[in-house]
Amino acid sequence: MNIEIREYTKIIRKKTILDNINLTLSGGKIYGLRGVNGSGKTMLIRAICGLIYPTKGFITINGKKLGEDISFPERVGALIESPALLPEYSAYNNLKLIASIKGTATNDEIINAIKNVGLDPFSKKKFGKFSLGMKQKLGIAAAIFESPDLVLLDEPFNALDEESIVNIKEIIRDMKCENRIIILSCHDRSLLDDISDETIEMKGGKIYENN
């Protein structure tokens, strides 16, 4: 898996949201995006996901141009901003619905993903009745349960208690494999340094630092 971002610029209502981003991301690594609110982390994740169209520049995924050769990355799982799933569905039914699009995930994979993030897969409790932390955990499960090649997690540790943060960090580390790119954004520098192989600092829509 390889992602090339070249001269990517996004302007929305005359405001430059992403400014001349150049990045090369390769499989087997966890990338951490750091930056203050409004620095462009979420927009960069949306761009890689194919949800926004560049004003200038392009993104290629495994050599295929996003928005031209492909609409979205072929095997992607994403948690972008707050997880908003169907409020009247249980955790299992929400993931079952999402799984029905590709039809690749088995029932066991759905159950294991829910269990791994610390939720009860057999609970009838509806998503709308979940606490913020539970919603966040299910959002993470939704992003990873199909074992995608590209995992995009925007602020995955939001609303999680310490024990859950340790658990999610473990899950993310376990997911790391040769062909998989994991990108996560977070405000917490120490958390990000701990889990990422490379950190990318963003400021005002630009890459400020790349370690």
Binding site: C49, G50, L51, I70, S71, F72, P73, E74, V76, A78, I80, E81, P83, A84, L85, L86, N94, L97, I98, I101, K102, A142
Partner: peptide, 16 residues
């Protein structure tokens, strides 16, 4: 449908 579960289904639908 551009956010929430709609977004989850959108990115998995492979074609806009």
């Amino acid at each position: 449908e551009m956010s929430g579960i709609g977004q989850q289904l959108l990115i998995r639908s492979s074609k806009k």
